[in-house]
Lab assay of single mutants.
Amino acid sequence: TFYNFIMGFQNDNTPFGILAEHVSEDKAFPRLEERHQVIRAYVMSNYTDHQLIETTNRAISLYMANL
């Protein structure tokens, strides 16, 4: 899942690491979701930090390219 992918960046001092920290603390994050459209919609609806949203979009693109 995307959640498992992004958790691989925990403790990294990178934008993906920052995203992983936010996702791990977000109890409502769709952890079992595999459809990138649902993940993107969730982030757009629940996150207000523009940098975090952009990082999510980049992470989703990388995740999709590696499926």
Rank of each mutant, 00 (worst) to 15 (best):
E25F: 11
N13D: 13
T56M: 15
T1S: 13
A20I: 04
M44N: 09
A41V: 08
H36S: 13
G17P: 02
E33S: 06
T48N: 11
N11S: 08
N46E: 06
I18N: 08
Y63H: 08
I60C: 05
I39K: 01
E25G: 14
A28N: 15
L32P: 04
A59K: 03
T55H: 04
Y42M: 03
L19K: 00
T55M: 07
M7E: 01
T14G: 15
M64S: 07
L52G: 01
E21Y: 13
F2K: 01
E21G: 12
D12V: 07
A20S: 05
E21S: 14
Y42H: 04
R35W: 05
E25N: 15
I60W: 06
A59G: 03
P15F: 07
R31M: 07
R58V: 10
L19A: 01
E33I: 04
M7Q: 06
I53T: 05
L19T: 00
L19H: 01
L62K: 06
I53K: 07
Y63K: 01
T1W: 05
Q37Y: 13
G17I: 05
F5V: 00
V43C: 07
Q10D: 05
Q37K: 08
D49L: 05
T55S: 07
T14R: 02
N4P: 01
S45F: 08
L32V: 07
E54L: 10
I53G: 03
F2Q: 00
A59P: 01
E34M: 15
F5S: 00
R31V: 07
N66Q: 15
Q37W: 15
V43I: 11
N66K: 11
L67I: 12
G8Y: 07
T48Q: 11
F9M: 05
F29R: 13
F16W: 05
D49P: 04
Y47G: 02
I39Q: 00
T55L: 12
S45K: 12
P15H: 09
G17F: 04
P15I: 08
A41T: 09
T56W: 14
T55E: 05
F16V: 02
L67E: 09
P30L: 05
F9A: 01
H22I: 14
